[in-house]
């Protein structure tokens, strides 16, 4: 009986121990469960963040593309403005040149028609050739209608003692210019060029309509001037017409003045009562 009792006690002890172990095991399970739940929840949260991050990345990528496009557009616009600026700068230089040309032409034209004195007109033509064209050695020739030859009426810069030949129409470069009425230019004389009266670097006809009344020969430019410029050709055109008119008008005026003086002399002679004698 006592043995059965002991046995039962022992078994109950074992059972209690087993229950206690089971209780610990269940506790462990619950803790593990709680830990796993927490991890699942964390993982779920983490997954949400990544999705949001991905969306933000996508948004940023779009924004970046948009900014790239805007940058490209701005760069193109900047390039266009820069090109326009260059055009404006170029245009400004051109307008400045035109201004300069117009000033030269205006002054030349104004001065040429400022007087009817033949010598003064010739002097003004010379001033224009020196100061506005920049010639160092040059001459002005007029056509003598009686002999049909060109003779020098004014010159500058030639060696002392030079004799200027009379040029016949169609004779050489100068004669050909006076025949055709077309100007002749060598834009840049060769380095070994020496002043040779019959071979100027420029010969400009002085024309009244189609009639050539003379020529301007340029044999050498000033040391600081390498070649003719665009404004020089404009000045040549102006000189061809305006200088010719000014020279011709002043010459006619001088002649008429002389004739008037002569006629006045005759009239005075005729109207003066004969001296009593």
């Amino acid at each position: 009986m006592a043995e059965d009792h002991n046995d039962l006690f022992k078994k109950s002890q074992e059972f209690l121990q087993m229950l206690s172990q089971q209780k610990d095991f269940i506790h462990d399970l619950l803790r593990e469960n709680e830990r796993l739940r927490y991890q699942v929840a964390s993982l779920q949260n983490s997954s949400g963040d990544q999705t949001q991050l991905a969306m933000e990345l996508e948004h940023l990528r779009h924004r970046l593309e948009q900014i790239e496009r805007e940058k490209k557009e701005l760069r193109e616009a900047y390039q266009r403005v820069e090109d326009e600026n260059k055009d404006f700068a170029q245009r400004y230089v051109e307008i400045e040149d035109q201004n300069n040309n117009l000033a030269n032409l205006y002054v030349a034209s104004y001065q040429l028609h400022s007087t009817l004195d033949f010598q003064e007109v010739v002097h003004i033509v010379m001033e224009i050739i020196i100061n506005l064209i920049g010639a160092e050695v040059f001459s002005i020739m007029l056509l003598d209608e009686k002999t049909n030859e060109l003779g020098v009426i004014a010159h500058e810069g030639y060696d002392e003692g030079i004799t200027f030949p009379a040029i016949r129409i169609a004779e050489g470069v100068i004669g050909e210019v006076s025949k055709t009425g077309e100007p002749y230019y060598i834009n840049q004389a060769s380095e070994d060029y020496r002043v040779d009266f019959l071979h100027p670097i420029a010969c400009i006809p002085l024309k009244i309509k189609e009639n050539v009344i003379g020529v301007i020969n340029i044999h050498k430019l000033l040391v600081q001037k390498d070649a003719f410029t665009a404004v020089d050709y404009e000045l040549f055109s102006l000189l061809a017409a305006h200088a010719a008119t000014a020279i011709f008008s002043s010459k006619l005026y001088s002649q008429s003045e002389r004739k008037l003086t002569t006629i006045q002399g005759f009239l005075d002679l005729l109207t003066t009562p004969a001296s009593k004698g």
Partner: peptide
């Protein structure tokens, strides 16, 4: 006079 006028201009 030509240069005076041109410079003044």
């Amino acid at each position: 006079p030509t240069m005076r006028q041109l410079i003044s201009f």
